[in-house]
């Protein structure tokens, strides 16, 4: 294909996207579109399955049976969401094996929030409320993204996730209605998870180079800073309602803007965690690698058995 042909294909492609048409796997797409989508969708998938670990850490210690089944079902949903997202990425011509390999060798990224430890039961509440709350803001916007399989995965994920944030908030609300010790536990969790949650929206707009392109492809519908502001505006009243204090002395309502003003994120910490120096980066990756490594013989056994069965079936038919 020569350059002129590519250009005209790309024009048609861009017009389709501008007209809110969905792009489907077999459609022509610019190589950059394919690569960007593989990167973003797989990052999203990796975040789901790495995200199972900090919460999974508390399944065996959940304080009541009701909490235990809710948490277990939530962590299981995350496995499902990882699965939907890997499947969406696979439609772009890459295998799940390759994607997992990129996760395991550290070339692929996942959301840094999961590199923070879950130290108390209240952390499970904080993750559900804040981390899922932040994720939902991103994901709801992505329902209208241009790539069909990604958009469809988002529809399913958003529907299933609707209980996740409530589950977390309810945990914290119950703690805040409990003893002093429980209230302190809840406040401590918010103190540790607040800033990392704000970091989930990524760098400031003026330092986020991909935004324009991603906006055009509807991989992003709102900028990092817009989403972050919406999250703060939504979350602060929820905290106040149950008596939690946001750990930010600069936080105050700005009547003129109609938004909360809030303090500066510690961008140095942000960069450190992204670069692998967060409190749990190594443990998280090693847990994923170990699961995959320990599962190798199982996956191989199933393939070997399937091959034997297929042989036997064809032999039976031949006789």
């Amino acid at each position: 294909m020569n350059e002129a042909q590519t250009t005209s294909l790309e024009e048609v492609f861009n017009r389709r996207i501008d007209a809110e048409e969905k792009i489907e796997p077999k459609d022509w797409m610019p190589e950059k579109y394919r690569k960007t989508h593989i990167r973003q969708i797989s990052q999203h998938a990796h975040s789901e399955i790495v995200g199972m670990l900090p919460e999974g850490n508390w399944i065996s210690r959940a304080p009541t049976l009701r909490r235990k089944v809710a948490l277990l079902a939530k962590v299981q949903d995350e496995a499902g969401h990882g699965l939907y997202l890997y499947s969406a990425a696979e439609t772009l011509g890459i295998s799940r094996d390759e994607l997992l390999d990129q996760l395991h060798d550290g070339t692929a990224k996942y959301s840094s929030i999961f590199n923070y430890p879950t130290l108390t039961w209240a952390d499970i509440g904080a993750i559900g409320w804040l981390v899922d709350g932040a994720a939902i803001m991103n994901q709801v916007a992505l329902i209208n993204t241009s790539y069909g399989p990604y958009s469809r995965a988002m529809v399913r994920i958003c529907k299933e996730e609707s209980f996740h944030q409530r589950q977390g908030y309810e945990i914290l609300m119950t703690l805040m209605k409990g003893t002093d010790e429980q209230r302190a536990m809840a406040q401590d969790a918010l103190d540790r998870w607040w800033w990392p949650s704000l970091m989930m929206f990524g760098p400031r707009d003026d330092e986020s180079p991909n935004t324009a392109q991603s906006m055009r492809w509807k991989l992003k519908r709102k900028s990092n800073d817009e989403l972050r502001q919406a999250f703060v505006d939504q979350t602060v009243p929820q905290a106040e309602l149950i008596g939690l204090r946001i750990p930010d002395p600069a936080l105050c309502w700005n009547e003129e803007r109609g938004h909360y003003d809030f303090g500066e994120i510690d961008w140095d910490e942000f960069r450190q965690v992204v670069q692998g120096n967060g409190p749990c980066n190594r443990e998280r990756l090693e847990a994923r690698r170990a699961a995959h490594r320990n599962g190798t013989w199982v996956r191989e056994a199933a393939l070997a058995h399937a091959a034997k069965q297929a042989d036997r079936d064809s032999l039976r038919k031949a006789i």
């Binding site: 499947s87 094996d97 190798t296 996956r299």
Partner: peptide, 9 residues
């Protein structure tokens, strides 16, 4: 790289 995932359905 471990390449032994099952076929897609």
């Amino acid at each position: 790289m471990i390449m032994n995932d099952w076929p897609l359905w």
